[in-house]
Design a protein around this nucleic acid. Structure first.
Lengths: 208, 208
DNA sequence: CCGACATATGAACGGTGTTAACTGTTGTGC
DNA sequence: GCACAACAGTTAACACCGTTCATATGTCGG
């Protein structure tokens, strides 16, 4: 036994993928490190060669999901005007959700709070965002909002507050879509049109 | 041992309170039925005389929290106009959160999905609301929104969608406050004023 | 008095996360 | 060419967990 297993997908990547899948299948309560090891085909303690434990594995899966997410959002930076960049951010948000539904559901429709080490509660999660990768992607939206406020295309409210408002709106749409509650709207193309229209309407309501 | 323990708080109530407290302290992962039994001063199997198990106990705590929550929201129904009722609902929401921070954090800043029996996934949670008590209180808000739409004080969008938008806004404010991230704003009175102003601004942006 | 009932109990089963000690393979410097 | 560190996996064990079972003890209506 042991030794290097040539030809495999590096086990580490297999573990994070299996972790994400199992989390979506079983939910946070029945999420089991042993089951993950079973699926990947190794023993439970072997997981500790790659991650510090159950929570670390979950965090790694989360981090990777946000990395992919961020790679979508940054594409919006190439748009010419502040308003176009904000709009493009919304479009990239949808594109990520539709092209990576598993990752979207994992990072946004689960992982409530990552089961902290019981006691040391310095400052609980602000509004659902705390770790580093989450914060990075959220900043991307806040900066877009700030730009628009400076360009007087959005009202002069707190940028973070406005960003949360917009985020809640697009997440609501995407979450309903991914849950199948918006399928009567039509296929992916029709939904995208509906999504864009809805975001336009919201941004109009937030003008100065 | 056994028999009736005269003078106590009926054990059942002690259990739901202990469950809520432990859940807030330890988080969903380290939430333990045995620890609850330990705190209440009975053995673990004794809990099964009162609840069907861990999830049922958690659900009971959740249900009670929403019952208290609903008792606040219904007070908003006595306001005279649709707009006043919607505004009053927002104020009652804040009042509940400030007067019952433990319950608020328990029902809204935790309990992501109640760890379903692994397999039978008919339809995932719509947008964070599924059970009965949650639905009841959410309907209270949706109905208030619908009233305002009919009275042409809100734009003619989907009432549920608009309700989620408003809910996300007030929850964001309350969550930041309860987490201590908004303490520079001042004491409770100053925050309440800020809250009311913020909600007013949002509703103005949602007019026809 | 006595059965019925509700309440609690200790023992036990299977499953969990985690640790420790061990084994085999791989790559590298002398 | 070969000892040696690093790596990736193993089994055994520990301390919990949720849950079930058979059992005991208390209070009550008859």
């Amino acid at each position: 036994m042991g030794g290097r297993d040539a030809g495999d997908g590096s086990t580490k990547a297999l573990l994070v993928a299996a972790a994400r899948d199992l989390f979506l299948e079983a939910g946070p309560a029945h999420f089991s490190l042993r089951e993950i090891a079973r699926r990947v085909g190794i023993s439970a303690p072997a997981v500790y060669r790659h991650f510090d434990g159950k929570e670390a594995l979950l965090a790694a899966a989360c981090t990777q999901g946000f990395a992919v997410f961020g790679s979508y959002l940054v594409r919006a930076l190439s748009a010419p005007t502040p308003h176009a960049r904000l709009r493009a951010t919304g479009s990239e948000y949808l594109r990520f959700a539709l092209e990576n539904p598993l990752d979207y559901r994992f990072i946004f429709m689960g992982v409530p709070e990552d089961a902290r080490p019981p006691k040391p509660r310095s400052g609980p999660t602000p509004a659902g965002l705390s770790g580093l990768p989450q914060d990075t992607t959220f900043r991307l939206l806040v900066d877009r909002v700030r730009e628009c406020i400076d360009a007087e295309v959005l009202a002069k409210n707190d940028p973070e507050e406005t960003a949360v408002l917009i985020w809640a709106h697009v997440h609501g749409l995407v979450a309903l879509r991914l849950s199948g509650h918006l399928s009567p709207v039509g296929d992916g193309h029709a939904f995208a049109a509906f999504y864009e229209r809805s975001v336009d309407r919201l941004l109009e309501g937030l003008r100065p």
